[in-house]
């Protein structure tokens, strides 16, 4: 099941991606709307990370293409931001929080140029948005997991992009950090920016997102949350393994989402 977006931010056209010739994503074909908070949901190994990596041009495509704002990725890179899974980097690297956030400015600076005072101000601003300004001089190995996540988020904000791909920004963060991050993401979509997030927790997914992509090696469903977040599609994506599913989707149907404890 898929719903076509009216105002298209990203178009996946018949995309197939393989590792060592073994396809892990089959014929993904969908359009995603501008200005929405979009969740990519699916079990482990469903190809969620693969999907956003291929959208960012980090993997070779076996077939199909991705267009962003109706252009090829290389023409709009400056407006697209990517937040990798936090485990992909070595946090013992000799650098400070502020320096990491400044990396978000490199695309604008171009080769050889150094960050200017203005870039530092923007970086500090972004740190403030994620509540990490007090940590700007910290060495990054002295951060907790949730703080690392927020530093990555700040780096993405510093890019001042229009489209954000984020790989599990909510993974392993506490409730307070979760709501802080969510607030930042909602602020972005309120400004008309598009945010696409890989997410694991079904219950909170029901509250966070406007639009849901259900994935399990192929596209199960893509569309507004109330049409996609149903028992049927969730069962299809998760292979009927989850018993909470029916409960969750019942809740969604009634739109009586439980207000979660924030602290």
């Amino acid at each position: 099941m898929k719903v076509d977006a009216k105002d298209v931010a990203v178009e996946f056209h018949d995309l197939t991606v393989s590792y060592d010739k073994k396809p892990v994503l089959w014929n993904i074909d969908m359009t995603l709307p501008k200005g929405a908070l979009i969740g990519i949901i699916g079990p482990n190994g469903a190809g969620k990370s693969t999907l956003i990596k291929s959208a960012m041009g980090l993997l070779p495509l076996s077939s199909g293409y991705v267009r962003i704002f109706d252009k090829a990725l290389d023409d709009v890179r400056r407006w697209v931001s990517y937040v990798p899974q936090r485990e992909t980097v070595d946090w013992d690297f000799p650098t400070s929080v502020l320096d990491v956030v400044l990396m978000g400015r490199y695309a604008r600076l171009g080769l050889l140029a150094r960050p200017k005072k203005e870039d530092k101000e923007i970086a500090m601003n972004c740190l403030q948005k994620v509540g990490m300004e007090a940590y700007s001089k910290r060495q990054i190995s002295q951060l907790s997991g949730g703080q690392q996540q927020r530093v990555f988020l700040a780096r993405a904000l510093a890019q001042e992009a229009d489209l954000y791909f984020m790989d599990e920004p909510f993974a392993g963060v506490d409730a307070a950090t979760e709501s802080a991050i969510l607030e930042v993401l909602q602020e972005l979509t309120a400004q008309g920016k598009t945010v696409i997030v890989v997410h694991h927790d079904l219950q909170s997914a029901a509250e966070f997102f406007d639009w849901i992509i259900l994935l399990n090696m192929r596209l199960i469903a893509s569309g507004p949350i109330d049409q996609v977040f149903t028992n049927e599609y969730l069962q299809e994506a998760y292979g009927g393994k989850l018993t909470v599913l029916s409960e969750v989707s019942e809740l969604i149907k009634k739109r009586r989402l439980p207000s979660r404890e924030k602290y």
Partner: peptide
């Protein structure tokens, strides 16, 4: 990955 993503 990030370097690649920002087009370096």
């Amino acid at each position: 990955h990030f370097a690649h993503a920002i087009g370096l």
